[in-house]
Amino acid sequence: MLFQEVLALIKKEFVLEWRQRYALNGMILYVFSTVFICYLSFNVKGAQLHPITWNALFWIIILFTAINGIAKSFNQERYGRFYYYYALVSAQGIIVAKMIYNALLMLLLAILGISVYSLVLGNPVADWPLYLLNMILSAIGFSTTLTLVSGIASKASNSPTLMAILSFPVILPMLLIIIAISKNAIDGLDRSVSDSSLLVLVAINLIVLSLSYILFPYLWRS
């Protein structure tokens, strides 16, 4: 039941997104231009950028893209539509669908981001499978955390600022661990070094996921 609901809602998200392509295009352009601005600001060729800087900068770009991209996930819904959903589907269905959809969106943006980023700023990554795994986990993590926060922020008046300040502290543990893992991947360290960090990342993802699942119905009702 929930599964079918979620599938239908994800489909709806995709259809809506495809109809309003300008929002998607906007996000893609946001990634491109941010990367390009960073490239021009540093004014260096790829090989010269220190791997630590390279890594941190990339994840900060992705973080801001995620915050901007996911912030609108509840703003798009018009008021009338809320009541319509309320009658049709469960709150859990909505949050799960939104999280899955946002995770896919984040993954797309992250992959686009890393392609352009490597193109202009070079690419020191040694362990690609680990890096990609990390990216997938981070897409899931960012989307689970930020979807609930965007739901919270959308209830308040000054939501764009609020979205940023509410999500920074909440996303931080995840961001730090992601940066640590991708640093390991860049250095090509032995996989066993990243094991415990990966486990922690998965654990945080699960905590955030289950909390969002539990808490969202309360948010939805208000």
């Binding site: 922690v200 654990a203 905590i207 289950s210 909390l211 539990i214």
Partner: peptide, 16 residues
């Protein structure tokens, strides 16, 4: 039930 679940989530996080 949710209270206990959430408390459980808080308490399981401590790591080594």
């Amino acid at each position: 039930k949710t209270t206990w679940l959430m408390l459980f989530l808080f308490l399981t996080t401590p790591l080594l």
